[in-house]
Amino acid sequence: MPAQATGAAGVLPDPGSGVELRGVRRQYGLVVAVKEVNLSVARFGRVAIVGPSGCGKSTILSVVSGLEDADEGSITVLGARSSRERLAKCAWMPQRDLLLPWRTVIGNVCLPLENRGVSKKEARTQVEPLFTRFGLQGFEDKRPIQLSGGMRQRASFLRTLVADKEVMLLDEPFGALDSMTRGDIQMWLLEALHTEPRTVVMVTHDVEEAVLLADEVVVMSPRPGRVIARIPSRLPAFTSRRQAVAMPEFIRIRETVHTALET
């Protein structure tokens, strides 16, 4: 999928580094969640982190986002070093859609704009076209509970998109969905990222999802998590998920990741 990278880099200055982690350590009480983590994500690159449960995958996203600080090491997000500055550059989307039940779907999507002082009416006008573009038209004024899991997750993603942060941190974004919905929404996400390019760091325990969505798969060791393998995942152009997973390249990369996970 070379179109994304070139298309986006042309618009923005300084390709430079998107996200850089150097010797990052994070400890909760006596438990060392991650240590000596080095990670580098190019601007508009997409990295997927896979690893056994509890290896500190989510911790990495928390410290990158600036929601938490690392105990050791340095983190740079588009040149920003302090947690406060990082927070301003990162959007974070966890497994649960975290839509506010007391707001309508569009009210939820408007939230980042309202936080920036945009009036409710103006925010709505800005966001409405996105509903059509991302297949949520007609559901603007529904409550989140009235939508299916897949649609809620799309609304949540839309909200993250509206936040207009260049770096997007996705923490098992589709983990709560059934496999069919999941396959569809993965394609949807690829398309969305194609039209709205972002630097993506995502965590998943689904190796196929990692290979499909990312251009590099990072494998972590069990706790305390360290990066044990970095596997490029560049696939030829594909039009459907089925087509992608049947490609020899896909299978080869997937097996490489599995092998790395087993060591």
Binding site: M187, H194, F238
Partner: peptide, 14 residues
């Protein structure tokens, strides 16, 4: 998936 890719977002009526 490239720009001329017809499916994806466009193929997502509710």
């Amino acid at each position: 998936m490239s720009a001329q890719e017809p499916r994806g977002a466009a193929g997502w009526p509710p």
